[in-house]
Amino acid sequence: MIKFGTIGTSMISEEFISVAKQNQNVKVVSCYSRSKEKAKEFIKANELKARAFDNFQEMANEIDAVYIASPNGLHFEQAMYFLQQQKHVFLEKPLTLDVKQAQQLYEVAMKNKVILMEAFKLIHAPQYNFLDDFVKKYSPFAATFSTNKYSSRMPDVKKGIFNSVFDEKLGKGSTYDMLVYPVELAISLFGPVKEVKSMSSQLSNGVNFVDAVLMKHESNVITNIMCSKSSNGLVGSEILSDEGTISFQEVLRLNKINLYDIEEKKNYNLFDDDKEDMMKYELDVFAKMVLEDDLQLSDYLLKISCETVRVLNIVEQNSL
């Protein structure tokens, strides 16, 4: 049984607790908030038998692993603390806001022989295998990923109110909160990136809310990405080869996956939608890695996460 502590009291933390209750290998035993009273309220609201903490050191003594769902800009400091205490870390995306910090976390995790995993749900979902199989069989040359999701925080942004997601230091806007999904998906499918071209639009505080990105992978696949947090996109995504095309809706869920075979001139429906909470799959993988001490899989996943942060850094630099 893996004894978990949580950091963060947002909806994503509630989602984690919900799937953790369904996992026989996991038990949430403590919750952290800067306000202990808020942590107690969170525990009560989620019907947990857990202790409330407002101190990392005290919580570290009670747990085997920690789930971190704090604002993006706090990921590095918090993850580093628990890795140094030789605790396993399940960290919400993005891994960090800086590739050098991501590498530092990677090195400390490997040195201390503990599992560090970014909570990037797409690669662990069963439907991801349809895309992976297509890439292996059809050898694609290009992909177009569309990720446009209207943020519930946009009305505040229009009033000049920038909460954590759109904060310059804590969230850094669409680039690190939304673009991370298609970039990481592309890297997991096509491999490391050797060239990045991008343009972005900024809010008045300087953070991006629209990103247009063109990446060329070391495999020579070219990925085109359109991403924003200011509108709901209606166009899906596709991966192209000279033998077939695979298309899907919603990069955030990988649903409605279809294959068009050029030789047969036929469309095949491969997958509609998965009603399961996708966090279930990533928590299953994390728990399995911890229980089996699978540092090899951890290494593989961390390299994808670090490469993703490197590309996001380039996109951010291009927008300055």
Rank of each mutant, 00 (worst) to 15 (best):
S10H: 13
M11G: 01
S13N: 09
A20R: 02
K21F: 13
V28T: 13
C31Y: 02
C31P: 04
C31N: 03
Y32L: 07
R34M: 08
S35H: 07
K36S: 08
E37D: 15
E37K: 02
K38F: 08
A39L: 01
N46G: 13
L48H: 08
A50N: 14
N55E: 01
A65N: 06
Y67P: 00
I68S: 05
N72K: 08
F76A: 00
F76L: 00
F82L: 12
V89W: 04
F90L: 15
F90M: 13
E92Q: 13
K93G: 08
T96R: 12
T96I: 07
T96S: 09
V99R: 10
V99C: 00
Q101I: 01
A102F: 07
Y106W: 13
E107N: 15
N112I: 04
M117S: 12
M117T: 01
A119S: 15
L122W: 02
L122T: 06
I123H: 03
A125N: 11
Q127N: 08
F130S: 07
L131H: 05
D133P: 00
K136D: 12
P155C: 10
K158M: 11
K159I: 09
G160E: 07
I161Y: 06
F162P: 02
N163M: 09
K169Y: 06
K172H: 01
G173Y: 04
S174F: 05
T175H: 03
Y176N: 00
L179K: 01
V183K: 01
L185W: 01
I187S: 14
L189R: 04
P192H: 07
K194F: 00
V196C: 06
S198A: 05
M199I: 09
S200Q: 06
Q202L: 15
F209E: 14
F209V: 12
V210Q: 03
V213T: 15
E218D: 13
E218M: 11
I222V: 14
C227M: 00
S230N: 11
E243N: 14
T245I: 15
T245A: 05
S247Y: 06
Q249A: 12
L254Q: 08
K256Y: 14
N258C: 11
L259N: 08
Y260H: 15
D261H: 12
K266D: 03
D273C: 03
D277V: 06
M278Y: 06
M278W: 00
Y281F: 15
L283K: 01
K288V: 01
L291G: 04
D294E: 07
D294A: 06
S298M: 12
D299G: 01
I304M: 12
T308P: 02
T308S: 15
T308N: 10
